[in-house]
Design a protein around this nucleic acid. Structure first.
Lengths: 127, 127
DNA sequence: CCGCATCCAGTATGATACTG
DNA sequence: CAGTATCATACTGGATGCGG
């Protein structure tokens, strides 16, 4: 059973802000990486995705794909063949999200060195 | 630059992957909301932040601010007065990140209804 | 080949009480 | 006012084995 932690209250627009709703979805460990990979490669099979993100386990890849599929970000095509084949790709909704997470990734790529430096040597007395 | 150096396919560098590094930071439950609030209000005191995000606990607000401060996203100014006063604001680095999370927020606001509808409609097999 | 179920550990989050 | 400390709990994520 789903336990919704999002409280719907009218006195607070922050609590029910879409930011929390959406961020809860791809704020997890793998959703963004899956979306980026699908965005780069188009249609991918389950195994291809797993190879593209070796650190992900089957369980998490499945869970991530289910989540994204439930939100309409990713579409899932099952082919009743032998051997079975399942292909994933971004929906149009997912592709509208892609530029944003790419922008975020780009920012991360640009500023990661600075962040790591800040985190390691927190010797800045004044800025 | 348009070249995508963030591809995570064959060249697997999870440890150095900026996406994972940065996403681990503000992929938590509150960092984004804190950044948005600071971005909207400029300088804010601890209590003001807590009032602006009522669902957050003191502990999590403190932890979130410490994390953001360690990364150089947020600056913290302590005034040795009575009563004590501590003020927070985004650093310049934090402000460069702000547009990206705002873009993300905007996407979330635009498509949340669709996502919620997708999420609700996909679960009709379970009753 | 694809995916689920179960068990298990680490961590993120939260409530409460206490301190300077 | 602005935290810190402690405990309790929920959830995430990983390992493994089973099923279609």
């Amino acid at each position: 059973m789903d336990n919704e932690k999002i409280i719907i209250r009218d006195d607070l627009d922050i609590a029910n802000c879409p930011v929390r709703n959406v961020l809860d979805r791809f704020g997890d460990k793998w959703s963004v990486l899956v979306m980026i990979n699908l965005g780069n490669n188009g249609i991918m099979r389950f195994n291809e995705l797993q190879k593209s993100i070796p650190d992900i386990s089957q369980k998490m890849l499945t869970a991530t794909l289910r989540s994204l599929e439930a939100d309409g970000i990713v579409s899932r095509s099952v082919y009743a063949e032998v051997p079975p084949r399942v292909e994933y790709q971004l929906t149009e909704l997912g592709e509208t999200l892609l530029p944003h997470i790419r922008g975020l990734s780009q920012w991360a790529f640009t500023h990661m060195a600075t962040i790591l430096k800040n985190r390691a040597g927190k010797t800045d007395k004044d800025s």
